[in-house]
């Protein structure tokens, strides 16, 4: 007896069609920690950007009478620093430089290191060996010492510090993007793309980049938290921003003497660095979890 099937089509799948990044954003929005970090970072960034508009005082004008005045002094909401300047104003203005010195090197390192890593991962062979072994050489130096050495050699000043930090951050990004590219490159769909006659650039642009962005971005975010600290650190030892520019690391240094008399005020720039760094770190964790679900 033959089985005669009725003419009915495939049962339609009734899922919603969301893109990958849309899904990531949705999951991120549901994570309270990530939302909190995003809000904090946005607030700090905005207050840094709009510092001239919202700061109550002039960051470079110090009143001798108000030196190291405690929190809550009239006019100086968060107290006065060792030269009598308003802490609140200097923290707001300091954010500008600290954030720039933290974020810009990561962005630059991502562009340069990412390109190098993808090239090494995709091409393989001799090119990969050159790129990766050069990267290894840089890895031989502890990052902080390397930053100090380069900044020291170039001298202080914003441009030099940015350069020093970028150079230090390129190797880890090369490694992460190379390893991600190598993994993706061996997947069947890349082979299928090659089998359709596509050249390397098309394959990288369409197939590789979209699939490595996830892990690379997560890593870049975690590097942001490190970069902020290193930038502040360089300023702390005098290789970053120059006084009297307000910058959190620099402020930590200049307030060192006040640590026994006004510990809260002396700690404040450190607290700011801590909050920003931690927020970037937690955000990178949140991003990673959001990307984990298939």
């Amino acid at each position: 007896m033959t089985f005669v099937p009725p003419a009915s089509p495939d049962i339609a799948v009734t899922f919603q069609s969301t893109g990958y990044w849309t899904g990531v954003m949705q999951r991120l929005k549901r994570d309270p920690v990530s939302i909190a970090c995003l809000i904090i970072l946005t607030l700090i960034t905005l207050s840094a950007v709009f510092a001239p508009l919202i700061a109550p005082n002039d960051p470079s004008v110090g009143k001798v009478m108000l030196r190291l005045k405690p929190i809550g002094t009239e006019g100086y909401l968060l107290g006065g620093d060792e030269l009598g300047r308003d802490m609140l104003t200097r923290l707001l203005y300091g954010g500008r430089l600290s954030l720039i010195m933290g974020v810009v090197p990561v962005v630059l390192a991502l562009l340069i290191g990412g390109t190098l890593g993808v090239t090494a991962g995709f091409t393989g062979g001799f090119v990969s060996v050159i790129i990766m072994r050069t990267t290894d050489v840089f890895f031989a130096f502890p990052s902080v010492l390397l930053a100090v050495a380069i900044a020291g050699a170039l001298g202080s000043g914003l441009g030099n510090t940015l350069l020093a930090l970028t150079v230090v951050l390129i190797p880890p990004l090369v490694r992460v993007s190379e390893s991600a590219t190598t993994q993706v490159r061996s997947l069947d769909f890349v082979e299928a793309a090659r089998a359709s006659g596509a050249g390397s650039f098309s394959i990288i642009r369409v197939h590789i980049l979209g699939n490595i962005m996830g892990p690379v971005l997560v890593y870049a975010f975690s590097l942001l938290s490190v970069s902020i600290i290193m930038a502040a650190g360089l300023s702390f030892i005098g290789l970053g921003a120059k006084p009297p520019t307000p910058e959190w690391g620099l402020m930590l240094n200049s307030l060192r003497g006040a640590i026994y008399s006004q510990p809260l005020i002396a700690a404040m720039p450190g607290v700011m660095i801590f909050i920003v760094s931690l927020s970037f770190n937690l955000l990178s964790d949140g991003l990673r979890s959001a990307m984990d679900v298939k």
């Binding site: 033959t2 009725p6 089509p9």
Partner: peptide
């Protein structure tokens, strides 16, 4: 080949 039309059921549905 005499096939069974359609697909195995979706347990969610």
């Amino acid at each position: 080949i005499n096939t069974i039309p359609g697909m195995p059921p979706d347990l969610n549905n």
